[in-house]
Design a protein around this nucleic acid. Structure first.
Length: 462
RNA sequence: UCCUCGGUAGCUCAAUGGCAGAGCAUCCGGCUGUUAACCGGAGGGUUGCUGGUUCGAGUCCAGCCCGAGGAGCCA
């Protein structure tokens, strides 16, 4: 009597005729007066549930089986047989159905087998993974995460665990959450951070990049993949205060190598998703976004469009469009501009490269023209920036000049500067937002529905 | 943070300033190797909160709370 998961059964890995036990949660129950009930049992191992056929002869049929409602947990034991009905190849002819946990008030059970809004489901985030949509998203998220690690591992990258807590006080990537053990409820005057846990101000990381550069400048090909925190007061369908970011960093590489890596990497993880999660993608195409699979298939078979920022500005100027924010060289691209580029001009993802240095971070390598830096953004239709990256400034004099221009204190970056003093090397990298990648792959509209427990301004319940 | 829209049964949604409703869910009954089954019946409401206008407010007004879309910031 082996315990099996639903995925193994439905994939045909378990021969019919076998005695098996499945464990999971009831989706629906339908009774037949012929003397049996059909119970759809779901265990999360795949999209589809397994149909358990419970005959009236079961000892607890009247007392328990006929009282099962959506959400009850059960252990069903029986014989796997070819299905006598339409709609599924195999089913479990139950010889025993044990109710492990009842739903205490079926009428108010928050997850009912019917259409519920995603907004409502956010209010019951502890139960929403039991739904088709959030279950599918969880499996997609897992598959993409595994593919990310697999890609890097297969390509000789080392996974570096950069710190979550950082004392770098001006990484320039956004507002930071403070980490402190000072007694905030009894503060007298200004806090004395020399008395704080780390003896100085400390924060949650907004990027592992600066740290991971140190390992790239020793181990050549590295990446980080972990949680990232931004205390921005941004309230949109594309922003979270806590999200997961992938940041590869490669030595002896320039911006083109970086863009090549981004393209190869994204194609790999999307191919893996298409190959490994077709059940969930089929559902998402039916219920969330008709274009999701076609978009992924196009993505993995076509080349990225690459254009310089200067050419992008020229295209926008010649578009004949009137934008709310007028287009001129030197400006940062606004959402409306990114939308036009990706959704109308290119009709797909586009890599915009070599931005004006005035709108980019201090560590990006200054180009020979003195006006632009070797930065790149991968823009995707409907989402905007999915990847932001650059070739790093490896020349100490240029780096110092940039920090001075931006009013940064080089002493705060002494270890970052050391990389340029000792065996400096051209290197590059980028950051990919995991949740934005999931949005692109699935067509989900709101980033809060592709992470289990979203954190955003005013919201950290669960 | 700014702009716009919204909040009615467990869920999804109706209701010209005039008796607060439907579908699904739940419970009861019927029917069927059923497929988010189907048919009949029943229960289920502080219309987000507070105040105001009115003979009368789910509906109009003000403030607040919550949600969504867009913008900014970014991944």
């Amino acid at each position: 009597m082996s315990i099996v998961d639903v995925a193994s059964v439905l994939k045909g890995k378990v021969p019919t005729g076998n005695q098996v036990t499945v464990r999971g949660w009831v989706r629906t129950r339908r009774d037949s007066k012929a003397g049996l009930s059909f119970i759809h049992v779901h265990d999360g191992s795949c999209f589809d549930p397994l149909q358990v056929v419970a005959p009236a002869a079961l000892a607890n049929y009247e007392s328990e089986v006929k009282k099962l409602t959506s959400g009850c947990s059960v252990v069903a034991r029986g014989t796997l047989t070819p299905s006598q009905g339409q709609g599924q190849a195999v089913e479990l002819q139950a010889e025993r159905v044990e109710v492990v946990g009842w739903v205490e008030d079926p009428e108010t059970y928050p997850i009912q087998p019917k259409k519920a809004s995603l907004e409502y489901l956010r209010e019951v985030a502890h139960l929403r993974p039991r739904t088709n949509t959030l279950g599918a998203i969880a499996r997609v998220r897992h598959t993409l995460s595994q593919a990310i690690h697999r890609y890097f591992h297969e390509h000789g990258f080392l996974w570096v665990h950069t710190p979550i807590i950082t004392a770098s006080d001006a990484e320039g990537a956004g507002e930071m959450f403070r980490v402190s053990t000072l007694d905030l409820t009894n503060l007298q005057g200004r806090p004395d951070f020399t008395q704080d846990f780390f003896g100085r101000e400390a924060f949650l990381t907004v990027s592992g990049q600066l740290n991971v550069e140190t390992y790239a400048c020793a181990l050549s090909k590295v990446y980080t993949f972990g949680p990232t925190f931004r205390a921005e007061n941004s309230n949109t369908s594309r922003h979270l205060a806590e999200f997961w970011m992938v940041e590869p960093e490669i030595a002896f590489a320039d911006l083109n190598d970086n863009a090549d890596l981004a393209e190869s990497f994204l194609k790999y993880i999307f191919t893996a998703l298409l190959n490994e999660r077709s059940d969930d993608l089929t559902f998402l195409v039916e219920r969330v976004d008709k274009e999701a699979v076609a978009r992924l298939e196009t993505f993995v078979t076509s080349s990225f469009t690459r254009m310089s920022y200067t050419d992008a500005i020229a295209a926008l100027e010649q578009s004949g469009r009137t934008f709310e924010f007028p287009v001129h060289w030197g400006m940062d691209l606004q959402s409306e501009h990114e939308r036009w580029l990706t959704e109308e001009h290119v009709k797909g993802p586009v890599v915009v490269m070599h931005y004006p240095k005035g709108i980019k971070a201090f560590y990006m390598r200054v180009n020979d023209d003195g006006k632009t830096v070797a930065a790149m953004d991968v823009l995707a239709p409907g989402i905007g920036e999915i990847i932001g990256g650059s070739q790093r400034e490896e020349r100490l004099d240029r780096l110092d000049a940039r920090m001075q221009e931006l009013g940064l204190d080089p002493q705060h970056y002494w270890w970052y500067r050391d990389l340029r003093r000792y065996g400096t090397v051209p290197h590059a990298g980028f950051g990919l937002g995991l949740e934005r990648t999931i949005i692109y792959a699935t067509g989900m509209a709101n980033i809060r529905d592709v992470i289990p427990f979203p954190r955003m301004p005013g919201h950290a319940a669960f």
